[in-house]
Amino acid sequence: MRLEVSHLSCGYGKGKPLIKDVTFTVGSGDICCILGRNGVGKSTMFKTLLCLLPPAGGHILLDGEDITTWKAEKLADHIAYVAQSHTPPFPYLVEEMVMLGRMNHIGVFGRPGAKDEKIVDSLMRDLGIDYLRGRAYTEISGGERQMVMIARAMAQEPEILILDEPTANLDYGNRVIVLNTLKKLSLNGICTIFTTHDPEQALLLDAQTAIIIPGEPVVFGPSRIVVTEKNLKSAYNTTIRVVEIIDGEGNPVRVCLPMLNGGIPAADADQDIWKEGMGEIQNESVEQ
């Protein structure tokens, strides 16, 4: 499986596209992390990838086929999506919620059979949410909900899993659970694309990282190379230190720390610094 995005521009209607010229390629088992400030157009890009919005330019190819011409049913067999956590109005049981992911395999007039039950059952055991089955989705915690939504998306049996800020509003423990799950899925050959506001997560997962900077081409590459102080500064418009520390097993781990005083106030953002930084970023991406 190979998802190629070439020169993709996304935006609503006929107006100026929000994001221009996105180019990247991901394959089975890759983890792709997308970084960018609020409102830069990450969700819009996801909508375009899911064919909910027509692309304003460029192509999205899955194994050489243009997915924008596919029907929703066919697309659902290949790409699954996990939205930012939301609460449905009715107390669905967790297993019912996961079962909803089987919808595209069941057919319009069908209902779940023994095979679907078996798939859902093994999926829930694999993701470690077996203990939740009989509980109502509205009564479980945020982290558990996120896991249930991932299970629901996996019940679609997709090749690509797209997650919109899967760790938003989660505490450290739950974040680690979700990130570990993503890692496990990638080991099973699922391609995972997710957004986050935490650049560390890209470093932790050793993911392919795309940094969206307004008005500039998207920076794409392995997180070790792409997540640098300069790139982060231009992405978030604030000073962020990337430092290396040693974890318990003696391996070097990089972490990102935002600096409170070193940042440039948004109103006085200096154009020259911007340009400088961008030049280096471009150089770096050329080097790759």
Binding site: E73, A76, D77, I79, A80, Y81, L100, M103, N104, I162
Partner: peptide, 10 residues
């Protein structure tokens, strides 16, 4: 949500 449902092919 509409987006979820459509990404599920419904």
């Amino acid at each position: 949500e509409d987006m979820d449902a459509r990404s599920m092919g419904v």
